[in-house]
Simulated assay, not measured.
Amino acid sequence: MLPAADPAALRRTLAEQVAAAHPSLAPGWRDAVAAVPREVFLGAHAFRPTATGWEPVHREEVGEQEWLRMVYEDRTWVTQVDGQDAADATGPLAGSPTSSATLPSLVARTADVAALRPGQKVLEVGTGTGYSTAVLCHQLGAQNVVSIEYDPTLAASAVTHLHAAGYTPALATGDGLQGYREHADYDAVITTCAVRTLPPSWFFQLNDGGTITTTISGWMLASGLIRLTLDDDGTAHGRFEDDTISYTLARPHERPPTPVFYPLDGTTRPTHTDPALTETWAGRFVAQLGAPSAQLMTTSTGIILRDVATGSHAWTEPDGPAWTVHQHGPLRLWDQVEDALTAWQKAGAPHLTEFGMTATPTEQTVWIGSPTGPTWHLPL
């Protein structure tokens, strides 16, 4: 029989694992992981992945000891799929996660990248279960933390979780992409969701020299973690980190439903770059920059690109040792992707640490090397 699970001991072990995974992590964030009772925030229900979807796991069914061991694994536990909470699921579901309890190492790493200091006033976009909010409160003081959640049901449960754990930050329900003017101005904005582009409100609600730490993602689900600093002219600058991480897209930025793909006649030509480049982390990120309104699907014979706005599509297939691409519609999606991949390869095919971003409320670009290097505009 396994020994009884002690939550405090499990937290300390988890904190040691997080610190070992990120040796440069500031001690305060390790201490926060060791202090915040994650079991309070995960509640009694979650989903775990299966071959075909998501299987609900209920605390009362697996038992208290096994549940605590699950809670203190350094992993993300999905709590909602396509808007349905795990508590309401009676069997496996297919669909996409819409809320989760993010793995503690990512919560701590994101906060560490943000370089937050005690006494700074922070807006957190995406309260979720409230766990990341509690981590911020432990380090910064609850009086300095404002958190906003899009989903009213999640927001209500987060209030309960945070108060049960002894934390009383300012909490709001609404679209975090609009910020939260009632408590502005902020020294920092930090997000537990990904965005396709930085909302103007975040700029307007920051103090001079304030920072934005977020994940830039898109409809190909490629992403990069970045911290940007606002200069005196109102322009934010930053470089991407080397983390291969992803958060769920903010709900207003989520991908539209993907329809069934039906290839239509168009043009056909050999490819000049290998479609397999889109399977690498940086390659997929570059492809997304090249065709920001397109979705990408991987098949056994190649890739499919479909543009949400125009219905344009492209698909690749092997042609002996090479590849052929078929394109249909007003946009030549593979041309756009191939141009971006070629520019990236000419720059040495660097990882994301060589990428940076320059952003204002009206224009936002991602570049390689410097703002004068290969550059792409984000959709506004």
Rank of each mutant, 00 (worst) to 15 (best):
G83I: 15
V195D: 01
P118N: 09
A111P: 08
C193L: 03
E66C: 04
V107S: 04
L154I: 07
F203S: 01
G83K: 10
H183S: 11
Y72C: 05
A158T: 13
T191K: 00
G176T: 02
A156K: 11
R117S: 08
V195L: 02
T153W: 08
D151M: 12
F204H: 11
A165F: 13
Q205L: 09
L140G: 10
C193T: 07
T90R: 14
L154T: 05
P199V: 12
V78D: 01
F204P: 03
C193K: 03
A155S: 11
Y167T: 15
A86W: 06
P97A: 01
A89Q: 09
A184P: 07
A87D: 02
A155T: 10
P200E: 12
F203N: 02
T168D: 11
H138Y: 11
E124P: 02
V146E: 05
V189R: 00
V146W: 06
A142H: 14
T79A: 00
D85N: 07
L116G: 03
P169C: 13
G91I: 06
S157P: 00
E73F: 07
Y167E: 13
G119S: 14
T129C: 04
V189Q: 01
N144R: 10
L154M: 10
T192Q: 05
D175I: 06
G91C: 07
Y150M: 06
P199I: 14
T192E: 05
A114V: 09
G179E: 06
T76E: 00
V81Y: 02
A156I: 09
Y186Q: 07
T98M: 00
A165E: 15
T192I: 01
A114M: 08
S201D: 15
H161W: 12
C137M: 14
P200T: 14
P118D: 08
V159L: 13
T110W: 12
A170T: 15
A184M: 13
A164Q: 15
V145H: 09
E66D: 12
L68F: 08
A165D: 15
E149A: 01
E124I: 03
L116S: 05
L106I: 06
T160E: 09
V135M: 10
V113T: 06
G128T: 05
D151K: 15
T102W: 02
G166C: 14
R69A: 01
A156L: 11
A94P: 03
L116M: 11
V125W: 03
T133S: 09
Q205G: 05
V78T: 03
M70A: 03
R109M: 06
V159S: 04
D185L: 12
E124T: 02
V189G: 00
Y180V: 11
A158E: 05
L106F: 04
Y180L: 06
V159M: 07
K121W: 14
T76R: 01
A115R: 10
L162S: 06
I148W: 06
W67S: 02
D74N: 15
D185S: 14
P152Q: 12
T160V: 15
S201V: 13
S105D: 07
L116K: 12
T197R: 04
C193Y: 04
G119Y: 12
Y180E: 15
H163M: 11
Q205M: 11
T102V: 03
T197S: 03
P92M: 08
V125G: 00
G63A: 04
V159E: 06
T191E: 00
